[in-house]
Design a protein around this nucleic acid. Sequence first.
DNA 1: CTAGTTGCTCTAGCAGCTAGAGGTTCAAGG
DNA 2: CCTTGAACCTCTAGCTGCTAGAGCAACTAG
Lengths: 140, 140
Amino acid sequence: MLSIGKLGRAVGVKVPTIRYYEQIGLLPPPERTAGNQRLYGEKTLERLGFIRHARDLGFPLDAIREFLRLADDPDRSCAAADEIARRQLAAVNDRIARLSSLRDELQRMVAQCAHGTIADCRVIEVLGDHAHCAADHEPG
Amino acid sequence: MLSIGKLGRAVGVKVPTIRYYEQIGLLPPPERTAGNQRLYGEKTLERLGFIRHARDLGFPLDAIREFLRLADDPDRSCAAADEIARRQLAAVNDRIARLSSLRDELQRMVAQCAHGTIADCRVIEVLGDHAHCAADHEPG
DNA sequence: CTAGTTGCTCTAGCAGCTAGAGGTTCAAGG
DNA sequence: CCTTGAACCTCTAGCTGCTAGAGCAACTAG
């Protein structure tokens, strides 16, 4: 059995975060010692590892909650889990595309900076004037 | 002179957001009508356009605040603005790299889903077991 | 002139934690 | 066995960047 600190260190999640996950119902209320301190077993270690990993991958807590409900009921169809993963994949592709055009613009900004005074520097101007923008976002 | 609603529509920023920017000092307190309603001129339109554009590009408000301070004082060296842009560029490249490995893993997850029950589905398993993870994040 | 939209201020809420106060319990060393 | 200090407890408040709502005042079009 692990204390909350050891669990946190084992999984790479901070102690207040674990308590927060319990509070919002992602983790079940654990056993307690006689002195009211939390005690965790293997199952919670795995469950928290799953949560941490999914968070690293950018899944919002709501999606993780769905995953966990599915995992708690393994006879149900895989389609739901698949659908969540597909949705996340689409969102990630979208974010990559937006970030790529952002990167292009930043590179242009840095390249155009003449290393003189602001008056000569295009960084501010590029950011202020939409006409100089190569990104995919719309004006107005 | 523009009302707050017209300014918002012109720039693509919601009305409460404009008031919020004023509250945190990104926009100066504007003129008011006799009836206490905000009135904006060209300068604020440009300034808000700048902010909106920079937000779209993923700059945090603190970085934007820095940019605006520089723009308000155009005799200073460009180096600071350049430095901010470089920092942002590095951060963006980092985010793109992380998202790319995330995309790979999600694609793998989706490809491995057997469209059967959860018991056969690797989505949950891949997320739970770090050994199946090709991403660059560390366990523990 | 009146109706309907837009504006005002203020407070509270969202995600996903993080930090602090003020106190208790546990584990290690002597 | 006792002490010390780290780790734990609960509770509240704060962070970013807004968004939503209440309850009211002012502006604009017909």
